[in-house]
């Protein structure tokens, strides 16, 4: 994977990589991807992908409220608040 692809990937992942990290990760990611490329040797024709292992049953939850009354406690974990709002710097 070249630096350009790595930069796009890092942006999608919301990670900032400085020049040093770019180099380290480029090498590490490339090595791993090369290893992943071994999978190309496998004949996968006719194999269905396993998207969900061992989930053969329909599952659905009853439409019933589950009151844990945790909202105040959850807000305590927010790094910044104004009243009951969670605050972040303006998006712009």
């Amino acid at each position: 994977m070249d630096i350009h692809e790595l930069r796009i990937t890092a942006e999608l992942a919301m990670l900032d990589l400085d020049e040093r990290e770019m180099k380290v990760f480029e090498a590490e990611v490339s090595k791993t991807l090369e290893y992943f490329a071994q999978m190309n040797a496998v004949d996968v024709d006719g194999l269905e992908p396993t998207t969900h292992v061992l989930m053969e049953e329909n599952r659905a939850r009853e439409d019933r409220t589950r009151d844990e009354n945790l909202s105040d406690r959850l807000l305590e974990e927010a790094p910044e608040r104004q009243g009951r709002h969670i605050v972040i710097p303006n998006v712009l």
């Binding site: 104004q82 009951r84 709002h85 605050v87 972040i88 710097p89 303006n90 998006v91």
Partner: peptide
């Protein structure tokens, strides 16, 4: 959006 802050609900 309120000035330099964004309030999330």
């Amino acid at each position: 959006h309120r000035g330099t802050a964004t309030l999330l609900d």
